[in-house]
């Protein structure tokens, strides 16, 4: 009887254990990031450049596409109902800055840089390089996870700016192709843009970067089972990252909106 219950509950138990392990890894990473010595400078720079090189192009296409289609065209439809398509600028503050820029950045960074990190660390794990490092007295968390964690956090935060710029460009494109004037777009955009929205967007995006880095490093470092193991690790890393990012996004946006009523007023 107990074995039956064990078998039924095993997946849930494993999932909880994994979440706990990721929390422990987060704690270890933060502690070893701030405690001297700091041997991870070079690795940090190479990871930073690596992520920027890999992501700039997919992110460019993705942000323009999402904000032109999803936000631009559909929002013009929605606003036409009220006869107020000039309010598109105000909507783009909500759409591009608050929502689409952070989560398209997170999706692309997770899919591009996160998967590459998992593949890289997973390959090292199954070639037993990580064990070799530990034998040599080199701490893999300090030398491999911390630089990736910091680099992804900063890259994701900075790419948010990039995504906002190209997201707004998508809005401009949608305005132009719908035959509307650009003047009202910029006017409502600039009167509605608030500092809280911008900060919220940056903070959210930086925390997305932290989630991506921890999940992807954890999955890479625990890859097992030969050739298929690395692929499986990448697969589950990206699935877990997506779910985690979206759940976090929901809680964060809800808290931001509920605690800052002034950003909800369209001016």
């Amino acid at each position: 009887m107990s074995s039956f219950a064990d078998r039924r509950l095993a997946p849930a138990k494993n999932a909880l254990e994994e979440v706990g392990d990721m929390m422990i890894l987060t704690g270890k990473t933060v502690v070893s990031a701030v405690r001297p010595p700091f041997p991870y400078g070079g690795e940090f720079i190479s990871q930073f450049l690596f992520a920027v090189r890999l992501c700039w192009f997919p992110l460019l296409i993705s942000t323009v596409a999402v904000s032109y289609g999803a936000a631009g065209i559909q929002a013009i439809n929605f606003l036409n109902i009220f006869g107020a398509p000039d309010r598109l600028g105000g909507f783009f503050v909500l759409a591009a800055i608050r929502e689409f820029a952070p989560f398209v950045t997170a999706i692309v960074l997770a899919g591009v840089a996160g998967t590459a990190i998992t593949a890289d660390l997973g390959a090292r794990k199954i070639r037993e390089e990580l064990d070799a490092l530990q034998v040599l007295g080199v701490d893999p968390v300090k030398n491999l996870v911390v630089p990736r964690f910091l680099a992804l956090m900063i890259v994701t935060g900075l790419f948010d700016v990039y995504a906002v710029i190209f997201g707004v460009f998508g809005g401009v494109l949608a305005t132009t192709t719908s035959g509307l004037e650009l003047g009202p777009f910029w006017a409502t955009f600039l009167t509605n843009a608030s500092v809280i929205d911008l900060w919220g967007s940056f903070v959210k995006c930086t925390l997305f970067g932290a989630i991506i880095a921890i999940v992807c490093c954890y999955k890479g470092m625990t890859a097992s089972g030969g050739a298929e193991g690395v692929g499986r690790a990448v697969n589950s890393a990206v699935v877990i990252t997506f779910i985690a990012v979206f759940s976090f996004n929901y809680v964060f946006t809800q808290t931001l909106l509920a605690t800052n009523p002034e950003i909800q007023v369209i001016r």
Binding site: A65, G69, T118, G226, A227, V230, G231, V234
Partner: peptide, 29 residues
Amino acid sequence: GPVGVGTATAKSMVLNLVMVHLIGMLGTQ
């Protein structure tokens, strides 16, 4: 080798994401 599988997995994800966004945009249009 095993590294190649991981790399291919990561690469497929990049192309897929961009394709999803492009299809979404064209579909909407």
